[in-house]
Amino acid sequence: MDEPVFDWSYTWEIAPRLLDGLVVTVQATVLATVIATLLGLVLAIGRRSRQRIVAWFVAVVVEFIRSTPLLVQLYFLFFVLPSVGVVLSPLQTGAIGLGVHYAAYMSEVYRAGIESVPRQQWEGAVALGFSRRRTWLSIVLPQAIPPVIPALGNYVVALFKETPLLSAITVVELMQVAQIEGSRSFRYLEAFTLVGVMFLALSTISAAGVRILELRLARS
């Protein structure tokens, strides 16, 4: 009997295992997003530090992260962290690598937002006796962040699509599961088709989420 080109019954058989992989992918995405959005903000604020050395150091770190491949950074963390006594799961290591990498990019987005706040706003804050910290919290960040949320959202979607790289450091995420299934049955079409469909579905949903956020911001 000829094998069908696309075997539906095999597809249904592997789908649950791929969904398990998808859960890992989503976990990595969420963790990395939290790291990227928070660390990115810290880096952006650090670049505005009045301590020249701090601002310079942050600029160098951001430039370094952005100029080296994510895969190299992931390998580096995966092999170097344990040797300095930091033992994390592959998923944690991967999420940190992904998060730090995207924090560098997001810090540039935040920076654009911060620079869009006019100098007069800082001066208004000085005239009212605000501390530097209070100026960031009350005046600058509430004006700097809303306009850049769409750009940040686009990086979240991009970050999500880079999670297959984590398979290189043994994270059993969606892509890794598909490879395992393929090598087991020598059928790759169904597994990778499912991977594509799942990524498409989640990307579409999160892109729609970003757009809704954008619209709500535009209205307020």
Partner: peptide, 8 residues
């Protein structure tokens, strides 16, 4: 200030 500098 001349330009008010209110917090928008």
């Amino acid at each position: 200030f001349q330009q008010f500098n209110l917090f928008p």
